[in-house]
Amino acid sequence: MKFNEKLCSIRKSRGLSQEELGFELQVSRQTVSKWESGQSYPDFQRLVLLSDYFDMTLDELVRGLDVQDVRDMNRTDERVASLYRDIESGKESVRKAWKAFCIVGGIILVLFAAVVVVGIVSPHVG
């Protein structure tokens, strides 16, 4: 049995909702849901809390855990985090470019206004 299936089974056998278990472990219901669906795994501290809460050894709790699945999930999480960092960096570049565009546009507008005002104020020769 995979860890996520085992966790779900143990939780249900104890009559706990995901929200109740999350409260005991100080995580959200969504986090427990991700653990049970195999989308993520608890960190070591949470594994210890889970084993204590269910009165099991860590070995009993994680036996059968596919370590490669955990490694793959961590790599995926790192890639997603990297993408978010890249997006934030891109947003910052766009903000800087927009600010520069506004400053240059403002300067051009002031210069244009000055040329128009000077053209209206100075007498026409002719």
Rank of each mutant, 00 (worst) to 15 (best):
M1R: 03
K2W: 02
F3R: 02
F3K: 01
N4V: 00
C8A: 13
I10M: 07
S13P: 00
E19A: 12
E20C: 04
E20I: 05
L21H: 06
G22V: 02
G22S: 07
E24I: 05
S28H: 07
Q30T: 15
W35R: 08
W35Y: 15
S37F: 05
S40F: 01
D43E: 13
Q45K: 14
R46E: 14
L47E: 07
L50T: 06
S51T: 02
F54D: 10
T57K: 13
T57S: 15
L58Q: 13
R63C: 04
D66S: 09
D66K: 12
V67E: 14
Q68Y: 07
V70K: 01
R75H: 10
R75W: 11
T76L: 12
T76A: 12
V80Q: 08
A81T: 10
L83Q: 10
D86H: 12
D86T: 05
I87Y: 13
I87M: 13
K91C: 11
V94R: 07
W98E: 15
K99E: 12
A100F: 03
C102W: 03
I107F: 09
I108E: 00
V115D: 07
V117L: 03
V117S: 00
V117I: 14
G119F: 04
I120M: 07
I120F: 05
P123Y: 07
P123I: 00
V125K: 02
